[in-house]
């Protein structure tokens, strides 16, 4: 996966705690400030394009990756249909969303207030 530093790959690899690997479009992962920070700073992740998340299970990471793509596909669209969230994974995903910093925007936040 290690490429020349001046031309970073269009893809990054996300690795779950139980060793599952997901190759994801780099731009899609940038929705998460957490991953953005990992890929930008002077870290191993930035050089190798490989991020490991030991505390996240493959199942949850798969859903997260699905969300990255869903977000990327719809980033400029109006009236986007909601992504299905399996009820049994809801709380785990909520924790993961907090970890990846996928917080509501100001507008979304206002809805609840």
């Amino acid at each position: 996966m290690a490429l020349a530093e001046d031309t970073p790959s269009k893809y990054v690899t996300l690795v779950s705690g139980d060793g599952l690997e997901f190759v994801v479009l780099r731009e899609a992962t940038l929705v998460s400030p957490t991953i953005k920070g990992m890929l930008r700073g002077p870290f191993t992740e930035a050089k190798t394009g490989r991020c490991t998340f030991p505390e996240i299970s493959g199942e949850v990471l798969e859903k997260i990756v699905e969300y990255f793509h869903y977000w990327y596909r719809n980033r400029d669209k109006e009236d986007v249909p909601d992504m299905e969230i399996p009820v049994e994974m809801c709380l785990e995903l909520l924790q993961a969303a907090d970890y990846f910093n996928l917080m509501p925007s100001r507008q979304e936040g206002r809805e609840a207030a």
Partner: peptide, 23 residues
């Protein structure tokens, strides 16, 4: 009108919270 309109997908957290609220 509510001022909650935004372009693009909802955040994952919002989606999760909505699912949670329903269940």
């Amino acid at each position: 009108l509510d001022g909650t309109y935004s372009l693009g997908a909802k955040s994952l957290m919002t989606l999760c919270i909505e699912t949670l609220a329903k269940n």
